[in-house]
Amino acid sequence: MTALPPPSKKKLGLVIDLDTCVGCHACAVSCKEWNAGGFAAPLTDEQPYGKAPAGVWFNRVHSYELAATDFTTPAFDPGAHDALGLGSIHDNSGANRGAGANATAGCAGASPLAQEVAQPAMTLHFPRSCLHCEQPACVTVCPTGASYKRAEDGIVLVDEDKCIGCKLCSWACPYGAREYSHVEGVMKKCTLCIDRIYNEHLDEAERQPACVQACPTRARHFGDLADPESKVSRLVAERGGVDLMPELGYRPTNQYLPPRPRRAEAAAPPQEPLDTAQLPGVLRWLDRVLSR
C-alpha cells in the first residue's frame, strides 16, 4: 500500500560520518555481497566482463572536492596556498566541471559546525544509499503498492512480486537511491538489511546492516533515530547531523555528520630560542646532565 503508514515509533536508519569516511567502497561492496543473495536478490550485473559493466548497487561512494571557504589567508600565493590545502584560485576552471549553474549557492540553513572558521579546500567522500525518508514520494507515487514504508520501523521496501517496473519511484527519489534492473524488470533498493537486523540466526552483535558491519573506519552507524537516547541520536545531536536537501520535505531518516572543521592553526611567529648563526649550536648541550 503506497499510502504512508502513520509515523512509526521506531525509525531505523543509518548515520554516516563524513569526517571519518575515507571513501574505501567497503560499504558498497559488502552491501552488494550480502544483498546479492538476500531479500532483494539478485543484484544483477550486466556486461560483467565487457565494455560497459553496470549492475545494481544499493550503496555508491562518491568523491568531491570542496572549495575553500575563504581565500584571505595571510601568506597567499598559489603555491603556498596549495601546500596549505587551501585549494587554488583557479579551482573554478576545472572544479565546476558539469556542475552547471549550481554555484549560485543559497546559504540559508548552514550547518552549525561546518562554518565557524574559514575552511581549506577538502576532498570529501560521500556514500549514498536510501535514506528511508519519513515522507518518501518514492512510495506514494508507486501505482502498484509494491513500494511501501513499514509501519513498524519505517523501513522503505519494494515488494518485487508486485512491482511492474514502471521506474516512477526512481524518478520520485531525489537521492538516486533506487536501482532498476532491466534484466529482472523490477525496482530494487536498499533494504536496510531487513534480513540481517532482525535475523535470529545471526549473533546479536551481527544484527546490523552489512555496510555498517564492514566499514573499516566505523564511519557508519545503525540504530533507532526516533529514540533520542539511542547511540545514533546522540551522535547526531553531538555532531550536528544533517538531513540531505531538507527543503524537499522528504524528511530523511538517515543522517550525515558533516566533516569537522579543519584545524591548521594560523601560523604564529616562530620562536627563536637559538640563533644558529651566532654560536655552534651543538655546544648548548655540552653540560646537559642526562641520566642513563
Binding site: L18, H25, A28, A52, P53, A54, G55, V56, W57, R60, V61, H62, S63, Y64, E65, L66, A67, T69, D91, G94, A95, N96, R97, G98, A99, N102, A103, T104, A105, G106, C107, A108, G109, A110, S111, A114, Q115, Q119, T123, L124, F126, R128, S170, G176, E179, Y180, S181, H182, V242, D243, L244, M245, E247, L248, Y256, P258, P259
Partner: peptide, 27 residues
C-alpha cells in the same frame, strides 16, 4: 538546491572528483 545541499553541506561549493563507478549505471 545546490550540490552543497545535496551533500548536506549547504555552505560549501562542491565539484565532482570521482564518480562512484567509472562507467554509466541505471541512475
Amino acid at each position: 538546491v545546490t550540490r552543497g545541499d545535496a551533500l548536506g553541506l549547504p555552505t560549501r561549493q562542491a565539484s565532482v572528483f570521482e564518480r562512484p563507478h567509472t562507467e554509466a549505471n541505471y541512475v
